[in-house]
């Protein structure tokens, strides 16, 4: 699975890092709390979030995430886009809600990063 698969399934638009669409995605994490992402997301996870400030990109950088998809058509500011490009982190935005995005990706076979997963 790649960022391109996420883009397709969530009907998302690429906001930054067009050249990174082939990047591999291992798991999905949906959260608006960055500490939660730092605690639970696995390396190479894609983050679904409603937050668009630059700390979301910092979080992705620290936790070695594969990319970020903003939900509900949220668009990040220039600063966030620039930081993402400098760190090679692709950004997408989907019109879908967090709930719907998680549901569709789950149906398509994506897995979460939980240690409690069966």
């Amino acid at each position: 699975m790649t960022i391109e698969d996420i883009r397709r399934i969530l009907e998302a638009e690429v906001v930054a890092g067009e050249y990174l669409l082939g990047q591999k995605v291992a798991t999905v994490c949906g959260s608006d709390l960055m500490s939660d992402v730092l605690a639970f997301a696995r390396p190479k996870a894609v983050l679904l979030t409603g937050m668009t400030n630059s700390q979301v990109v910092r979080t992705a950088e620290m936790a070695d995430l594969a990319g970020i998809c903003f939900v509900r058509d949220k668009r990040p500011g220039q600063e966030t886009v620039e930081l993402a490009e400098s760190k090679d982190i692709p950004l997408l935005t989907t019109p879908l809600s967090m709930f719907e995005s998680c549901g569709r990706l789950w149906k398509e076979g994506f897995v979460g990063g939980s240690e409690y997963e069966d």
């Binding site: 809600s97 709930f99 719907e100 549901g103 990706l105 939980s114």
Partner: peptide
């Protein structure tokens, strides 16, 4: 639940609960 958001929502979705308007 011990599950994270993604897994819980995935399972809810499979039971027919959706997030479309």
């Amino acid at each position: 639940t011990e599950m994270p958001t993604f897994e819980l929502v995935g399972k809810l979705y499979n039971l027919g609960v959706t997030g479309t308007k």
